[in-house]
Amino acid sequence: MTLSPPAVHTATPAAQRSLAPDLARGTMLLLIALAHAHMFIGHDQTGFRGYAVDAAPLERLLTGVQVLLVDGRALPMFAALFGYGLVRLVDRQTRKGATWPQTRRIVRRRSAWLLVFGFAHALLLFFGDILAAYGFVGLLFTGMLVARDRTLLKIAALTSLAHIAVLVLLGLSAESADHRTEQPTTIADPLAALAMRLMTWSALTPTFYLVSILPAFAIGIWAARRRVLDEPGRHRGLLTRTALWGTAISLVGGTPLMLAETGLWDPHTPAAVSAYALHSVTGIAAGLAYAALIGLIADRRSAGTPGAIPRALAACGQRSLTCYVLQSVAFVALFSPQGAGLGTELTDAAASAIAVAVWAATVALAAAMARNGRRGPLETLLRRLTYPRSGFKYAK
């Protein structure tokens, strides 16, 4: 019996990394911050996306902008990039001589540790954790990485239908409760808050997040096989069409809920739930459009050395796991009753302003780490756990 020699696992040197995927991840974290910050603000009654319904007109205008452009749009983009990144991992292992069973074990080990990271994140910081959902998908759906293109597109279509069904159930539940639920982020008792975080997280991860991630995850795998973001110049037409059509679909699909959330339309339950489901499912198109747009921007930058801002955003994208968790650390410290307690004093607009500031701080930190040749600590830990016996090393 002939055994394949173990590959030496080295992280891709920064100089050899494609700009577009890292730039997309770094930019996407701004949308994540905006989507999460208002969940730390306490309200008696909210709309479907967690914003106050009794806010001032200017405040509700900002809510409308975020509902239309941010909420339900960051998660699909992240999911597509997750699928894209796993295909790149498989490609690297294949080039080093690893067989598919060997590579599958690596993907599943990495996914299992992501699940652990996500559990810790939800346990200690934020009920809306998405790391565990990606780990869950990586563990259960590893076979999608080698599935035929037609199979991937079928999975994307079928899980989109499942996504709509889950959204309708969640929407009906929210309507029946008159949108009056206590967020785990606003509970003062630490143990009660911890228990509520875990209850909410354990309900969301295998249902809502799973069906939200799978369609974009499948499309990300399809795109990675064609190196769409690695070689954006060769795919400029596809990226342009995706950016234009995806943006149009998401704006049309998001407008009814935006009108409802801003108070310009007062729909009855069937129409309200339909608007919520339409908004969320068309968010997949928005996520893909954003990734395509960033690919086009990266293509324009490829002719020369990227400027300071693209380099900083790419550095943040290379350390997206660390920066994502740091956002939650900052939000808990600022908003929660166990921290500064600003969640009971600030508005959604103020939370959004803080979200931008926190994201900018993580970008600056990532840029400083890049200048010093340092990887993100959580990225380093995940790699060491993924390749425990391979002698992992980072090539500068």
Results as ranks from 00 to 15, higher is better:
G287Y: 09
A395E: 12
L169Q: 05
A55P: 00
L34H: 04
Y84W: 08
I249H: 05
L31T: 06
A203M: 10
L115N: 07
I213D: 09
P256K: 03
P256E: 09
L172E: 13
D22F: 07
C323H: 05
G85L: 06
L169V: 15
V363C: 01
I155L: 14
I155W: 15
R319S: 14
T282H: 00
I130H: 04
L278R: 00
W265L: 08
R234Y: 00
H268T: 15
L191Y: 07
L257Q: 05
F335I: 02
L239Q: 03
V53Y: 01
A162G: 15
F127L: 06
R25C: 09
G138S: 03
Q183W: 10
P232A: 08
G237N: 01
Y134N: 07
V166L: 14
T242R: 01
I309N: 04
E261S: 11
T322E: 15
L264F: 12
A195P: 03
A188D: 14
A132V: 11
A340P: 09
L30N: 01
G47M: 02
G83L: 02
A11G: 14
L68E: 06
V116T: 11
A122D: 12
L365I: 15
W265A: 07
L140F: 10
I41C: 06
P337K: 02
Y324S: 06
E175S: 12
V116G: 13
P267F: 10
F335H: 10
W245G: 03
F127G: 15
L75C: 09
V65Y: 01
I32K: 04
I309C: 10
F392D: 13
L204R: 14
V8H: 03
